[in-house]
C-alpha cells in the first residue's frame, strides 16, 4: 500500500456564533491516495465545504480548527506556521471554486490573473509566464487568444475551465474542487468532469471533489466520503460504497438522485431536514430521519467500523447492512421514519 498524500485524523472545525461554539466538522478522518479522486458528498450544510476549505487554512473569520490533524506529504497542515502554510498554498494545494464567476476578479483579464499566480507565486518571468499560460489554456481547451478577455466575457463552462487552468498553474499535488459543476448544464458538467479525470490520469494530481450530487461521484471518483451533519458516516471505494452502502444515509442519498451511470431507479427523497448543528441530537445524528433507527441509535454515537476491507461506516446496525439495503430500495420505507 502506498503512502497516502493526505491523511485526516479526527479533524474538527468550530464556528463561533454569538458566544457559542458550533461544531461544523467533528472528528473527520479519511485518506487521499496520490493520483486519486475522492468525492466528499453530503447535503448542503453538512460541513463538507468547511472541511475542504480548512485544507487551505483560509476559513471564515469566526471559524477555527478545533482539533485533529491533516498530514499532507508528511507535514501537519493544521500545525504549520502561517508563513509555511502560505508556501504550500497553490504550489501544492490548489482550489477550484463553485462559481468561477465570483471567484475571478472582474477587473483583470484572465491572462493577468494567471500571470499573477505564475509570477508572484511560481517565480516565473514575464515571458515564461506567458508561455505557461498559453500551455495551460491549450490543456483545458480554450483558445490562447482569449487570455486577454475579462471573466464576464466567458460562458459558465469556459469560466470553470479557466478556474481549472488557474488551479493547474503551479503543478499542485492536490486540487480541492468545491462543487465545480453545480451551476452548469449536464453536457458541460460531463466535459468538466472528464477534464478532472484527465488531471488525475495524465498529471497524477489528486482531487478532493466536494459535491452534493451522488451521480457526479459515480461518474468520476475513486473513493467516496459521505458526510452527515458534520460527521463522516461512511467511506470506501466508490463502486463498493455506492452499490452496497452500509449506512442508511448513503442508502437514502442514492435513492434521492437520478443515477448518472445507469439512468434508472425511482427518486425517493429522505424525509425531514438535517439537524441544527448548534444543538445536535445525541447519539447518531441521522437517527431522527433514519427508518431503521433503534433505541441505542438515539443515545450512543456510533464509531466508524469496518464493513468490508477499507469500506467503513458509522452505524450501529452495520452487521445487518444487507437486509437494510434490501428494505431501503422500497420507497415506502422512507415515507414514515420510525
Amino acid at each position: 500500500m502506498t503512502q497516502p498524500l493526505l491523511t485526516l485524523k479526527d479533524l474538527s472545525i468550530a464556528y463561533r456564533v454569538g458566544d457559542q461554539d458550533t461544531i461544523a466538522v467533528e472528528g473527520a478522518s479519511f485518506d487521499v491516495q496520490p493520483g486519486s479522486i475522492v468525492g466528499l458528498v453530503g447535503e448542503s450544510g453538512c460541513g463538507k465545504t468547511t472541511l475542504a476549505r480548512s485544507l487551505t487554512r483560509v476559513l471564515a473569520g469566526n471559524a477555527r480548527i478545533a482539533g485533529g490533524e491533516a498530514i499532507f506529504d508528511g507535514r501537519d497542515i493544521m500545525a504549520l506556521s502561517e508563513r509555511a502554510m502560505n508556501g504550500l498554498r497553490w504550489r501544492e494545494i490548489a482550489f477550484i471554486p463553485q462559481s468561477a464567476m465570483n471567484s475571478l476578479d472582474p477587473v483583470y483579464t484572465v491572462g493577468t490573473q494567471l500571470a499573477e499566480v505564475l509570477i508572484r507565486r511560481g517565480g516565473l518571468g514575464r515571458s515564461a509566464a506567458r508561455t505557461r499560460a498559453e500551455e495551460l489554456f491549450e490543456w483545458v481547451g480554450i483558445e490562447t487568444n482569449r487570455l486577454g478577455d475579462y471573466p464576464h466575457q466567458f460562458s459558465g463552462g469556459m469560466r470553470q475551465r479557466v478556474a481549472i487552468a488557474l488551479a493547474l498553474a503551479l503543478d499542485p499535488k492536490l486540487i480541492i474542487a468545491d462543487e465545480p459543476v453545480t451551476a452548469l448544464d449536464v453536457i458541460v458538467q460531463r466535459q468538466i468532469l472528464d477534464q478532472l479525470r484527465e488531471l488525475k490520469e495524465r498529471l497524477g494530481i489528486s482531487v478532493i471533489l466536494v459535491t452534493h450530487d451522488i451521480s457526479v461521484v459515480a461518474y468520476v471518483c475513486d473513493r467516496v466520503v459521505v458526510m452527515y451533519a458534520g460527521r463522516v458516516v461512511e467511506t470506501g471505494p466508490m463502486a463498493a460504497t455506492l452499490t452496497a452502502p452500509a449506512h442508511p444515509y448513503t442508502m437514502g442519498l442514492r435513492n434521492a438522485f437520478p443515477d448518472l451511470a445507469s439512468a434508472a431507479g425511482e427518486l425517493t427523497p429522505i424525509e425531514g431536514a438535517p439537524p441544527d448543528l448548534a444543538s445536535p441530537p445525541p447519539g447518531c445524528r441521522f437517527a431522527p430521519r433514519c427508518p431503521f433507527a433503534e433505541a441505542r441509535c438515539r443515545t450512543d454515537v456510533p464509531g466508524l467500523d469496518i464493513y468490508d476491507g477499507d469500506h467503513l461506516a458509522a452505524c450501529h446496525r452495520i452487521a445487518e447492512a444487507e437486509t437494510l439495503r434490501a428494505r431501503a430500495v422500497a420507497s415506502e420505507t422512507w415515507e414514515a421514519p420510525a
Binding site: 471567484s103 476578479d105 508572484r120
Partner: peptide, 25 residues
C-alpha cells in the same frame, strides 16, 4: 467577495489581496 477569498487561497501576499484585488474593486 469570493475572489478576495480566492486570492488568499492562492497564497498571495496581504498587500496583493487588499490592494490589488479588494481596493482595486
Amino acid at each position: 467577495e469570493d475572489f478576495v477569498t480566492m486570492a488568499r487561497i492562492k497564497g498571495l501576499s496581504t498587500f496583493s489581496v487588499v490592494i490589488r484585488h479588494a481596493a482595486r474593486n
